[in-house]
Write a protein that binds this DNA or RNA. Sequence first.
RNA 1: GGGUCUGUAGCUCAGUGGCAGAGCGGGUGGCUGUUAACCACCGUCAGGCGUGGGUUCGAGUCCCACCUGGCCCGCCA
Length: 598
Amino acid sequence: MSRSLAAASASRAFFATVVPAQSVRKRIQPLKVSSDSARKYIARAHTSRTSASVSGRNAESRSHFFCAASTFPSSSSAAIPSALPASASPIHHTVRSSTHLQPWIPRRHARSVHRPDRLRRHTGRTVMERGPHRRRSIARLLEGAVVGEQVVVTGWVKTSRFSKNVSFVHVFDGSTDKTVQVVLDEALALAYKAELGVGAAVRVQGEWAASPGGEQSVEIKAHEVQIVGASDPSTYPLQKKRTTLEHLRTIAHLRSRTNLHQAVVRARDAISWHIHRYFHEHGFRWIHTPIITGSDAEGAGELFEVRAGDKPEGFFGKRTFLTVSGQLEVECFAQSHTDVYTFGPTFRAENSNTARHAAEFWMIEPEMAFADLDDVIALAEDFVRTVTQRVMADLPGDFELFDKRCPECGAYRPKEACKECGFDGPGVVASLQAALAEPFARVTFHEAVAILQQVDRAWEYPVGPHESLQAEHERYLAEEHFGRPVFITNYPREQKAFYMRVDEGGETVSATDLLVPRIGEMIGGSQREERLDMLLEQMERHQVEQEELWWYLDLRRWGSTPHGGFGLGLERMVLWMTGVQNIRDVLPFPRTPGHAEF
RNA sequence: GGGUCUGUAGCUCAGUGGCAGAGCGGGUGGCUGUUAACCACCGUCAGGCGUGGGUUCGAGUCCCACCUGGCCCGCCA
């Protein structure tokens, strides 16, 4: 045990947390109080039908204790004071308001943030029990805990096995794909067996120890167990065994506790974080474009209307909608800050019923001034490549899980061929590595059409210079012909949006779609039309109202530059990287036609 | 929006016009440094087969309508 921990036990301070049962969100921060006061808090919380817990360290036995009123039998309030150790005497009496509880971390110790024990030794401040330093996550324990050290782990029971002499409980906390194995002796197992079912929230204190088991190298020999939140396995909707993703969608509030969703949530977070990191490393500013927009003229799809009150002109004095894209707005900032991007929620009211569409999704839209289509394509490729590699490097355990799933049907397939669908191609990790092994392909729309016309295959939809590429064509190009991501460029003018720059000759526009295997279109981008006269002509052709977009036209009046960017659907990148088939499984609470539960 | 498949126990599913089933999960006991453990026992731990009509002596099964969910396509990111 470190010296700082020993010093803490000498102070004999106690920490009482009073949590009003009616409103868990308005949690009162831990108060550092004397043992007498702690008793009072516990007793008062108990009689007022709230819950409270007291934790601290017994000065003589040096053992942790932790008790909560909510876990006591409601009939025996007498049990509460006796749960505190007799040796607890008032030494320290500090009560702070919740606004002062943010630990002050000196700059020179910033690197120690992930080692709260060390931080406390340097600063002498009791930051360990507060906020993010109140305990170490399982990820941190696996990184830095020393065998023999006393540790605390909090989390939820994934599985438990009991026998006469020794019992095992696996606890997860979401910080890593790993669980930590808690070993219980006979007495602890006997005391808690009934309550340590799947799903229970627990707090375990014990010794970090080497594990003789084959599947893990370390474990916790429990000294104390606290059932923080009980869970009845006979009614708990999640089971120890597999359930289908379709069923889990009906319990989206609980599915983030399952293996796959735990991993997907971490992957989604890592992708988002690395997207921000990538752009900031390259000098892009994050622009918060509006969610509520007054323009319904962008032509990017059906809109959700925003209303408040019953005034005929509405809250804003005009009709307003949820944004379908921040692109037009972020273009303004490209013309002032050069390299910018948006990253936020986006809404489309289309009646799309596919595995790749949602009514609410997150979109990333970089925009560069003084840039042409080649710049956009170079950015898109470097961006996808960098983010993908970094995310895979960050989450090796999670990608091991993704790789075990069949890319075709999602069944787990430890061996080569999938038992469900017979697929025996590479897993998602190998296919991602293959996709990144070479530079992405690049062809013009007309070259792509020529490729498709030369294939001896009966297409369901016609192929031609004036037909649009359908999903079957896009999949063929990315999966079979090129076998890696491919940029299609210079689409026919009439197929693309009004703001895309018209090419020489006037037949095509400087647009590009990035098609990736299994997903299809992941990115859509273009060089924008910077010439006022041509933009006006385009709006005329596409029947876009000029009056609504007067400000967008203004950008072309003063200091217009060649510029461009792309839009990336975050969820499509998550699907691509994780191998999950359905967008409804990578959004925390997916919104699709007919579904806004939770 | 179009097409298609589907709906039986908490979950995953089987069920040939004739008595509603299995595995998993759950419970109980045992055993084991276990690994989605293992062994034994429990159906009074569970459903009347999505809902509503119809055919039939008899419908989970056949027909019709509606609802639900999945998948494919379109729209796109």
